[in-house]
Design a protein around this nucleic acid. Structure first.
Lengths: 225, 225
DNA sequence: GTCTATAGTCTGATAGAC
DNA sequence: GTCTATCAGACTATAGAC
């Protein structure tokens, strides 16, 4: 603390015509949160920059000080929805090496599902909507999602006592989280364990293998939940 | 046939500035097909009536002779995507009475998945997009889809040797068809049998029960495939 | 049945004051 | 950092000619 005790009650710049609802969040994050809610609630293409501004409590033009446009907002939203899982995928590869593929696959499901549960306003839904996926800027996210499916497929095939395993199919089972949330339901940790068990079961794992995988992945991830 | 042998080369009304691509289809169906392709490819909210008209080969204003607007086109599209399954649900109830719940559930999956496979341009995707689901006109379809999930839940619980069965979850497993198609893949009859088996398995059915259900539902439905 | 022409609305984006 | 003011472009929908 310097000698300036000045509590930052008034910030630099002209004051808003409506005060911020939650000023613990940066303006950028306020915009992001409002956008997520609107994009998921009414669709990306169907949401105007004016509606976003209204929800935040600023004028439409003021958005452009923080973001270059609607697509840049969407981009940051998608990043935060997809990245967390892939950032942890190295850690999961380690689990595979130490404790086997079943434990690794179980851990992947638990992490991926947590990402989807934590996504603000269920923004994971956006990644399958044509008005989003047809955008040029979506390409990198599409390839990221392909990587994720590829990981599911590798893990699943290593576990499998079953002829064919499709990565897309396994990832789809996890994406039930998005469906539940869209339906208004809350997805618990228990629900996610059920999903993880279902994925392993789809790969032909036995009940015992699944229970071991659950225990190991819990120990390895030092779950905080 | 009257005395007028006149082959209908030129139809009533002013000719189009571009001739129809496929004049075996009625103008209404030409519009419907082009709309499905565009809605699924670029999003409903993101598709303008001009683009639809261009795809059909008529002027933007001419659409309004056939449909009251974009939403009416969407409505007919949704009807054709959802109705076929529910229309056959009585038939399936009969199977349940005669041959048991497992056979009925298997049949439900086969019929529902066929509806999704047959939906032109994968239009089943529309029913989960916010720009569609947030429309006032979507309400009846939402309740129809709830009915479908309710049917899955009833059948699933009757089959179940497993504590909890969620209708939404079972329906979600079938909706993998939409994901596959969105990925560009073709979904075969064999794929659909795999899905049906997976759904029964998720309800705790044994391998034998599944095989019997498959045989029975095939016999009862007089499948043409 | 399809055309041309056009009204009125909403949109994303920029410039400059405070 | 947010405001006011403004614009050009795209949009849906209607009216009337052919």
């Amino acid at each position: 603390m310097s000698s300036a005790v000045r509590t930052r009650r008034s910030r630099p710049g002209r004051p808003r015509h409506v005060p911020a609802v939650d000023d613990t969040l940066s303006p950028r994050d306020q915009i992001l949160d409002a956008s997520a809610r609107l994009f998921v609630g009414r669709g990306f293409a169907n949401t105007s920059t004016r509606e976003i501004a209204d929800a935040v409590g600023i004028r439409q033009a003021s958005l452009y000080y923080h973001y270059a446009g609607k697509e840049e907002i969407l981009g940051e939203l998608l990043s935060r929805t997809v990245r967390p899982t892939l950032d942890q995928i190295e850690k999961i590869e380690d689990i595979a090496a130490e404790s086997g593929w079943a434990a690794a696959l179980y851990a992947l499901v638990m992490i991926d599902s947590k990402t989807l549960v934590d996504a603000p306003h269920n923004s994971g839904l956006l990644a399958i909507c044509p008005d989003v996926t047809s955008l040029e800027m979506f390409k990198p996210y599409r390839s990221t999602l392909r990587d994720l499916c590829a990981a599911y497929e590798r893990f699943g095939r290593a576990v499998a006592s079953v002829p064919y395993v499709s990565g897309v199919r396994l990832e789809h089972e996890v994406s039930i989280v998005v469906r539940y949330r869209a339906e208004g339901d809350v997805v618990s940790v228990r629900d996610r364990h059920v999903i993880a068990a279902g994925v392993l079961r789809a790969c032909g794992a036995t009940r015992e293998e699944i229970e071991i995988a659950a225990a190991v992945s819990w120990a390895e991830l030092l779950e905080d939940e």
